[in-house]
């Protein structure tokens, strides 16, 4: 990114130059704003998954980043060996499906016991198990794939929005994420199954008296939540590239968003996600790119000092 001072000085009246500088300022600003919005929305996929799983099972899955990574790897393998570069969107869907199945299996084997009376200290169990899973999966990925970085083919060539240059991959990932988020929202709010999920999140006993098989829905929810992360991984594969640790940054961003937004609020996540993306992008552009990690956390600290449960978070009801 070129800093403003590197733009060539222009001849002409100072007023003319001022106008041109302003135009450049606005131009750059818009470009970074758009990048910020795009990245923000992409990180939201992760947070949506984390939040959804928490809503249904009151469990925070610390290994979401690894499902992101699995999605990315699956996408890479599919594109390289099966589908070719043109059908990348099929790859995204298939990768999400693979991660869904994996997530459902993991839930069935490791998480379900929490809900059938086998496990005593639930929160402790969930935290330790998901953290261990994260590290387990990360290291297995390194053991299998080696510490290499894999580059999937581009999804689309560089394009423009109006006059702003934009990476085709980012635009496509952005649109994909919007579609996924939209589908997810529609699914939760308008479908019978979505209604059941809301029921499970709001009244676990009450939903059982309605005839909903909560244990099955727990499993589905975990699968869907991880599938969102996996889809994110597949969409972002050409941008973040595919390697065993590619889920780390999205995890951090995903949780930052959750802390800023507070658990339990879908619109809150969008607001927080966009804020984070924009803060990051503008900070990198106009302050310094090497501190990219810190801008989100500055935002986080500011928000938390005013609202310790996050922007829209509700304090956990003491049972």
């Amino acid at each position: 990114m070129r800093s403003l001072s590197s733009y060539p000085a222009n001849s002409g009246t100072s007023k003319c130059k001022q106008k041109e500088d302003e135009a450049i300022d606005l131009h750059l600003f818009s470009q970074f704003l758009i990048t910020g919005i795009i990245m923000g929305v992409l990180y939201c996929l992760m947070s949506m998954g984390i939040n959804f799983i928490y809503g249904i099972m009151k469990v925070i899955n610390w290994s979401m980043g690894e499902f992101f990574m699995i999605g990315a790897f699956t996408q890479y393998i599919l594109l390289t060996f099966l589908l070719g570069a043109d059908y990348w969107y099929v790859g995204v869907i298939l990768s999400a499906l693979v991660v869904f199945i994996l997530g459902a299996l993991v839930q069935r084997i490791l998480i379900k016991p929490m809900f059938v009376g086998i496990i005593e200290a639930k929160m402790e169990y969930a935290t330790i198990v998901t953290i261990s899973m994260a590290i387990f999966l990360r290291n297995i990925a390194v053991a299998i794939g080696g510490p290499k970085i894999y580059t999937p083919p581009d999804y689309a060539g560089p394009t423009q929005i109006l006059t702003l240059p934009l990476s085709g991959n980012r635009l496509v990932a952005f649109i994909g994420a919007l579609i996924l988020l939209g589908l997810f929202y529609y699914f939760i709010k308008k479908s019978w199954t979505g209604r059941a999920f809301q029921g499970v999140a709001q009244n676990r006993s009450g939903v059982q008296t309605a005839g909903v098989n909560v244990l099955k829905y727990d499993m589905l929810a975990f699968g869907i939540g991880t599938a969102l992360a996996g889809a994110g991984g597949a969409l972002l594969a050409p941008i973040f590239l595919v390697h065993p640790l590619c889920g780390l940054v999205p995890t951090v961003r995903g949780f930052e968003i959750i802390v800023i937004a507070g658990l339990g609020s879908i619109p809150g996540i969008l607001v927080a996600g966009l804020s984070l993306g924009i803060a990051e992008s503008l900070g990198s552009a106009f302050i310094s790119p090497s501190f990219v990690d810190i801008y989100g956390f500055i935002l986080l600290v500011i928000i938390l000092s005013i609202k310790p449960y996050g922007l829209f978070g509700k304090p956990e009801r003491e049972v």
Partner: peptide
């Protein structure tokens, strides 16, 4: 089965 006090879904 109508549960004691907690049969409904508050946010729905």
């Amino acid at each position: 089965y109508m549960l004691q006090e907690h049969s409904t879904f508050p946010e729905l």
